[in-house]
């Protein structure tokens, strides 16, 4: 299928009727839509998904869900989507129309099967008509009676146009989808889950397996006794009731998320007001905290004051520290000298005692007395020998005077000197610094307290602060409520699993007639053939996905192509997760180790995801037109050229790129011109955007 033309009428900044022709050819498959930031490229993408899916936009992916949540709810999104100038002119409708060609349809009573049907779909909203938007589908040559209900139309879009599950691969922002590379296995599985179903065309086979299972269950039920049948009916009702409850909870969760988003945007407004007009950026609950802080600082101030007073007692000594040191030194020398004198006297005394005892104490020599002159001679000699042997003690210092101090007085001076040495002037300075800092802190905090107290007297500030607190309380409650909903949902799912198991056991026990047994056996063969087929297809699709993704990455990424930095991605492995939970994709380096996707740069992530998207689309059983916002996202100059010359020209039969003049300036446009079927420029004046044929003429315009 292809989209030939789109008409936007009064949608958001698109004033009046805006027609854009998207016809492409085999050689020229690209349509380029240039627009500066804020001119409406993203809203152009939004208009298409709104036209196709209406309220179900939120189910496409988180990005589109946020677009709805920005306005609070779907009805508000609709109301805010009417062009603001049109509102002033008294008009009340906006619409989006998509004209489709090359549409493939199966044979019905109304038509032959074929792949060149044309159809037009239109979604319109009138803000003066309460209720939903109107959704209309017209197929050339087929009566409108085909679509009797809204569900018929939704099914038609999902089965023959672009399935909702595939929309994330068809309408996307190339920069934002790079974040898929950061998803957990479970999240990645669910994002890629649709790739194995709708997109690869296996959903029809799985649908038939499901219908065949319903058929075999039906055969058994027909043969059940009245009592067993009653049990089956009760169990099935239980399952149905649980499914209803789960659906109800899911819609409650959606409402909860929408309410949360709305309240969060209110909080942002309150905060903006308070930042602008309030003297503070605190909330009232922090006032008590500030009082507490002030009390603590005052206590600290008092402590420092006491410490300073203690220190100030020794200030005179500090000032006289030099003199005190001199006295201390003098006392030390004086003590040394008196010690030496004492030692000298002791030695002289002992020598005299020795001489005295030598000459005057018995026994005496038998040959007569020693003469006095000899005694003098030997006494002098002994004195000299003692001096030689024990060393002569000499005074080293000549002190001019001596302090006449008692021992306790000397001790006091030494102690005072040591104390001053320890409590050096650094401590004084530090204490004074701390004291000043605490004083400043007290002044600051008192200023803030004063502002808060004055705010507390400002009624508007009080109102906004109260509203903000109330909104924060609501958010907490909503988060709690959402958690409770999710728990209930999980419990119901588990309960249904058990009920289904017991139902299967019950059905298997029923004995059936010979004729029904034949049918059961035959139906089971059909089921087995289809299950084998689906399982083999999933395996082969996985291996094709691995190969195609890897080849594409090799094409696009220089690092892989020229082998520099080693082979940091040498292989890709895609595995189907159990329980139909989608795909798990792993990257391996040349040593066979897993390369974590989060280790890739933003540009590399974009290349990896773009390669994966292309691989998925190449395996799809339908040809989709592809719409890409920010097509060159985080890429550098050389990779941009690869994308423009090799990736986009081969991505699909119809590729619509929405770029800024920074991404695809005129110089790059020349590069890609050979592939471009049509180029348009979004022009904006007075907040109104119009679509004009042509492209940026220069970097500036």
């Amino acid at each position: 299928m292809k989209i030939d033309k789109i008409i936007l009428t009064n949608f958001r900044q698109y004033y009046g009727e805006n027609v854009i022709n998207l016809m492409t050819t085999k050689e020229k498959n690209i349509v380029l839509l240039g627009g500066k930031t804020g001119y409406g490229k993203t809203n152009f993408l939004l208009s298409l998904v709104w036209c196709l899916y209406g309220e179900d936009i939120a189910k496409i992916d988180e990005g589109f869900k946020r677009e709805i949540q920005k306005d609070g709810s779907y009805p508000k999104f609709l109301k805010s989507s009417l062009n603001w100038d049109i509102v002033r002119e008294g008009k009340s409708k906006f619409s989006v129309e998509i004209f489709i060609s090359d549409l493939e349809l199966p044979e019905t009573r109304e038509n032959e099967s074929g792949n060149n049907y044309k159809c037009r779909i239109k979604r319109e909203f009138n803000i003066n008509s309460p209720g939903d938007d109107t959704f209309d589908i017209k197929i050339d040559g087929i009566k409108n009676s085909m679509f009797q209900t809204l569900d018929d139309k939704i099914n038609f879009v999902n089965d023959y146009l672009i399935p909702l599950e595939a929309a994330k691969f068809v309408f996307f922002d190339a920069e934002k989808i790079a974040s898929w590379a950061e998803l957990s296995t479970k999240e990645e599985g669910s994002v890629l889950n649709d790739a194995l179903g709708k997109l690869l065309g296996l959903d029809v086979y799985e649908g038939l397996i499901n219908d065949l299972n319903i058929y075999t269950d039906g055969l058994r039920k027909e043969s059940a006794t009245a009592q067993v049948r009653q049990t089956i009916i009760t169990t099935e009702k239980g399952i149905e009731l649980n499914i209803e409850k789960i659906e109800h909870l899911e819609s409650e969760i959606l409402i909860n998320e929408s309410d949360t988003a709305k309240i969060k945007s209110e909080i942002v407004k309150y905060e903006a007001f308070l930042v602008q007009y309030s003297n503070r950026s605190f909330n009232t609950s922090s006032l008590d905290e500030l009082y507490k802080q002030r009390d603590e600082l005052r206590k600290k101030e008092k402590d420092l004051e006491n410490k300073f007073n203690e220190l100030s007692e020794i200030i005179p000594f500090v000032l006289a520290a030099g003199k005190l040191e001199e006295v201390n030194e003098h006392i030390k020398l004086q003590d040394e000298e008196s010690y030496l004198v004492e030692k000298q006297n002791e030695l002289i005394e002992k020598n005299s005692e020795f001489i005295e005892k030598l000459f005057n104490n018995p026994p005496f020599p038998t040959d007569g007395d020693i003469s006095f002159s000899k005694k003098i001679f030997y006494a002098d000699k002994a004195k000299r020998i003692v001096e030689d042997v024990f060393g002569k003690i000499e005074k080293t210092n000549e002190l001019e005077f001596e302090h006449d101090l008692s021992k306790s007085e000397k001790d006091l001076i030494v102690e005072t000197f040591n104390h001053i040495q320890k409590q050096s002037k650094d401590i004084f300075e530090q204490t004074i610094d701390n004291f000043n800092r605490v004083k400043n802190d007290i002044t600051e905090i008192e200023k803030v307290i004063k502002n808060i107290e004055s705010d507390l007297e400002d009624e508007e500030i009080i109102e906004y602060t109260t509203n903000k607190k109330e909104a924060e309380r609501k958010i907490e409650k909503l988060i709690e409520e959402k958690g409770s909903f999710q728990n209930q949902k999980e419990n119901l799912k588990r309960e249904n699993e058990k009920l289904n198991q017991s139902l299967q056991v019950l059905l298997k026990r029923i004995s059936v007639s010979e004729q029904k047994k034949k049918k059961l056996d035959k139906a089971n063969l059909y089921i087995r053939a289809l299950e084998d087929f689906v399982s083999a297809q999933k395996k082969s699709k996985c291996s094709a996905l691995e190969q195609t993704t890897f080849n594409e990455m090799n094409q696009l990424m220089h690092k892989l192509r020229d082998g520099s930095n080693g082979k940091f991605i040498a292989a890709i492995k895609a595995e189907a997760l159990p329980n139909n939970d989608g795909l798990k994709i792993s990257l391996f380096d040349s040593d066979g180790n897993i390369t974590p996707k989060e280790s890739l740069s933003m540009g590399e992530k974009q290349i990896y995801i773009s390669s994966l998207v292309k691989a998925i689309l190449s395996l799809a059983v339908q040809d989709f037109p592809i719409f890409i916002d920010t097509p060159l996202g985080r890429l550098d100059h050389e990779h941009i050229n690869n994308f423009l010359l090799s990736y986009y020209p081969n991505l699909a039969n119809q590729v619509v790129l929405m770029a800024t003049n920074n991404e695809i300036p005129p110089s790059r446009f020349k590069l890609v011109r050979g592939f471009v079927a049509n180029a348009y420029l979004l022009e904006s004046s007075k907040n109104q955007t119009k679509i004009k044929q042509g492209y940026f003429q220069s970097y500036e315009n």
């Binding site: 058929y215 049918k519 063969l525 059909y526 053939a529 084998d532």
Partner: peptide
């Protein structure tokens, strides 16, 4: 591929191409 799986499981490929049970049983008889 589907035809291959049908052959393997002795199921009529045309019948599956549902994408019938009584007819299939009758044809066997």
């Amino acid at each position: 591929e589907l035809e291959k799986e049908c052959r393997k499981n002795q199921v009529s490929f045309i019948s599956v191409e549902l994408l019938e049970i009584e007819n299939s049983i009758e044809n066997e008889n």
